[in-house]
Design a protein around this nucleic acid. Sequence first.
RNA 1: GCGGGAGUGGCGGAAUUGGCAGACGCGCUAGGUUGAGGGCCUAGUGAAGGCAACUUCAUGGGGGUUCAAAUCCCCCCUUCCGCACCA
Length: 874
Amino acid sequence: MNELYSFHDIEERWQAEWERQAVFQCHERVDRPKFYCLEMFPYPSGKLHMGHVRNYAIGDAIARFKLMNGYSVMHPMGWDAFGLPAENAAIERNVHPATWTMANIDAMRKQFKRLGYAFDWSREVATCHPEYYRWCQWLFLKMLEKGIACRKRTEVNWCGTCRTVLANEQVESGNVCWRCGQTVENREMDGWFLKITDYAEELLNDHALLEGHWPERVLTMQKNWIGRSEGAYVDFPLVGKDGKIRVFTTRPDTLYGATFMVLAPENPLVMTLADSEERCAMLRAFAEKSRQTDVIERTATGIPKEGCFTGTYAVNPLTGEDIPIWVSDFVLWGYGTGAIMSVPAHDQRDFEFARKYALPIRIVIAPEGCDLDSESMESAFEAVGKMINSGPFTGMSSDAGIGAITRYIEEKGIGCRAVTYRLRDWGISRQRYWGTPIPIVHCERCGMVPVPEDQLPVRLPDNIDFDWSLGGNPLSRVESFVSTRCPICGGPARRETDTMDTFIDSSWYYSRYCDPRNTREIVDPDKNNYWIPVDQYIGGIEHAVMHLLYARFIHKVMRDLGYGRSPEPFARLLTQGMVCLEVMRCPRDGYLYPEDVIDNGDGSYTCRICNGPVIAGRSEKMSKSKRNTRDPNDYIDRFGADTIRMFSLFAAPPQKDLDWSDSGVEGVFRFLKRIWRFVFDHRGLLEGLASGPIAAEDFGNDHAGAEVIHRKTHQTIKRVTEDFDGRYHFNTSISACMEIVNLLYSTPIPEEGAADYQPIRCAVREAVYALLHMLNPFAPHMMEELWHELGGTSLLAQGPWVTWDDAIAAEQSIEMPVQINGKIRVRLTVSADATPEELETRVRQDETVARWVEGKTIRQVIVVPQRLINVVIK
RNA sequence: GCGGGAGUGGCGGAAUUGGCAGACGCGCUAGGUUGAGGGCCUAGUGAAGGCAACUUCAUGGGGGUUCAAAUCCCCCCUUCCGCACCA
């Protein structure tokens, strides 16, 4: 055995060995329970960052633990390989997106392998591969058949920088592109949509299956996004015109108080309502102004809302009164029916609008025990109360009134019960090249024709001209692609040139891993049913409502197509925190790279560029623009994969943000070296440790030093094992292992032949045996190496895991704190199985206790077994 | 505005069916080893007071429940995240 811990050699050796023995290749074994461990697959940007290292280190620890515990573990890896960066690289550097992507995949795969993650590489997929995307196209055709996919012309979010349409989920803070951060604009365009709204109810209800297994806030975010609300549609007939306006309300009980109506400016009805040419022009101008108003400004609270009267009236169907129809941009065209009934007395927005334009306010709900006055009231009364001025419903509670009025309008045929959602259909058309072509042909004679299944995949052409200045989708300029024959009539036709949102690719990849080379089917249903659901899914919180909602939707679609039984794709979800580092900023030169910062050693820093003082900012997510990134490669070079992996698990629990720290990394490196050195220094004593278990009788139980190690070992196995089964707080698992190592260092190892040599030898051998197993999920290379050095012929990776004995883990005697009136005054060493009565007697006899009690009387002695004793005196 | 998370030494973080606050690591201090430095080893390290045994204070702030509160309840502050006229 080498005295030096030469991590590079060790890591290469074991990576090769795992690969040679195909240790991480999995199969559908019926003799073992299965465990599907999955981390969100990466976009092949070409370089791993610390966030990746952490994400995959978490999953790898779990996967390895499960494998050691006898599970049939699937832990696959692949590439979310379609997307804009590849196409942008093509434009900037004149490299084909496929070439660029493939080179990136190769580079990242190498990095992954250097980190020694336990992936089953035989299942690798890349979404840009025709054998993958043909099944995206197939899925699209199935959804078209079932009416889930459709084409329509609507207002869409257009990102000018990315030159494509975005789905609503991909627009952040109301108007910002999730990818590039630029403001999006509204455009009316044709596009393909998936009716995720058909599944809204199920997506919402099935949250119940995930509760307790998914982070609460992800469920809350999805719930808010789906935004279910219950109420009724009510029709208001127009005065002097045919037709009616349908509104959605959650408060049918306030219908008698509806004194005007408001339509969204985009509502096409608006133009038909104008009572004069002049009014028509005004409304058109108003709509145009709304369109140009920033979405944030238009919808922000606190800003008074502009309105415009149409000149037309509708009839309140319950009061029979004529009420004016207005237009205002606080009513959204995308929600409900794009029209509302306004009840200013009981809705704050309506109230403010009514005050501004002097519209009538009628009170129809009275709060318990007091009266409202429409003249003097300063805000709407939105709570429940007693119905007044409401015809036959007067006197009813407003709660009961909701049901009663709904039934009434249903009987009269002027409305019906209804549920609406905030969730909109998923717009999947993208006007860019590097994505899955939508398998549709536009024929002059036959219209839109789906490409027959046996003609899939519709391949992306290679001969692309990426000249950005030409604008539009480069795909539409490839005549050989666009021009085709109609599958029905054989006549000339043109291919659809929109490609699919890449979120479709990532909505079912976890199923494809179950059967990645199937050329006949998207996945074999039996294989899918064996592995799915993913038992543990791990990724960033940023996908809470994008990927994670889309994937749940597509999963349910696939289930309905007969490709699986499980209602949900991901049984448990862990959202890992970000990797952060403090930013260095110079007032003159902006964010600084580490090499441009001089550490003065006294907590202050100097800018190397201008010699001015540098402001050490707070810790923020590592990002290129803030220049606070660190390259995993540098750390692998200096400390090895085991160190960087273990640090990213040790520095914080997985769910929390992690502060990167170079000295923290060195601390972990030091710990690993300490293990190495201990084994090296005691290689004689530890020799052959791996070849056979330690018999209980070898210990003897008369030596205190051995017993302490023995007990600590079993306690630690228990702690670490339970951390894996519960919260995944690996930071505490690792620190527990550090405690054992510290204990081993502080135990004097006797000379061979000394009386206590045998029991100590056994205890130390057992401790090291356990350590190698427990640390294997975190630092697998070093542990395999030491295992091998100590006579192991099997692989630690294949287990079995270590077990503990509660009887050994139990303390014989414990130091029990004794409190007097809640303050610790003395500690007594007592036998662990002492009865409360014995303990109380001990305490009453104790000198120190007596000193504190002197002159007072003991009122009560509280004995908490195994914990403490509290003496209450007065 | 609504909803959710967080707030513990110089730093990252332990400890929550209420029961020894600060495990473990970083940093710092001292000693040892070394020609020096680094590395490694040992000890110390929440604050204040005291020669000391020890005492007092301390988990964002203020109240409360309890023999006992970082943990439970009420009010407030700070911060991060999500949603934001959704009818």
